[in-house]
Design a protein around this nucleic acid. Structure first.
Lengths: 94, 94, 94, 94
DNA sequence: CACGGCGTACATCGCC
DNA sequence: GGCGATGTACGCCGTG
């Protein structure tokens, strides 16, 4: 996208961004980078937690498996709910 | 995990976890799940931001490229900084 | 799905599938699962081939790029062919 | 990878491939392209099957959900098996 | 240090 | 034709 303000044509000719578009773009970049920074920090903390568990003698592989299973269960429940809705709709109950 | 409290041996005898170990395990699981939830929320917000940018006509693929490049630049700068420090230290400037 | 045999109405009344429909459904599921199994096996074999190439010292990323480019070329050639046919037909040469 | 026969150094200097390496490369490309062709054909057939089901009045969305669920169940069983092994190993039973 | 697993990003496809 | 979902590929990290 070359100019979010101007472009009504969908042509691919390069054109400069308006200053308004540039400003919006800057803001998007800033918001994204903030969120990614926070996300990286959480990832960092997760690593630390696993490291701490490991240093206390826990098997991180098994620990990760537990986490994965619990998540999977949650997903399964959500999926089951979805399927129920789908079936109810299929038999005209919605 | 054999038992973070008991096991100093790494032998293969089956043994249950002590209640203390179980409690620690529960806490680790809780901490991890909290962090992962927050991480997912940030991921969600990132998707929303990209979606908003897209709805305003910005090319998200290009936007992602911008983010990636800036990140790379930051890494490069950090690395250069590290090298500089290393050299300064090597010549006794620190 | 209301009933592939019966339903001409698209009304929302709940109704069970006829046994004939159920049988068809089973067959569809079976055919799909067979095809997906075969597809997974091919995917598996592809992984093995890439693994073998890697173990012989080839850069799999470059190898993948080669495959991608050749595929693109093939697509381009097919498209050119189609255009040619279209033009030939347009000038009454077919 | 610049030469699968010669390169013991892992340096990144560009160098020509030996004819032996080139030949191997050609064979890998051929094998990969064969497998990918077959995979695409299966994908094509899958599309046809779903299309046929749809034309007979079946709800493909529900059909896909069924397939997904059955696959998920299989995965769950495999995962459960893995967890069992993991736990058995953790208590020294392997 | 090389490998495999995991999470993420891209592309494709079916649907609307 | 845009959008959402799904399958595939890449990069990163932890591990042996």
């Amino acid at each position: 996208m070359y100019d979010a303000d101007d472009d009504q044509s969908h042509v691919s000719a390069p054109q400069a961004l308006t200053s308004s578009s540039k400003e919006k773009l800057r803001q998007f970049v800033a918001r994204i980078e903030t969120l990614e920074t926070e996300k990286s920090e959480l990832a960092e903390q997760l690593k630390e937690v696993y490291g701490e568990a490991k240093s206390l003698g826990f098997d991180t592989k098994a620990l990760r498996a537990v986490i994965r299973l619990r998540k999977q269960d949650a997903n399964d429940r959500a999926e089951a709910e979805m399927m129920l809705d789908l079936y109810l709709e299929a038999v005209g109950e919605i």
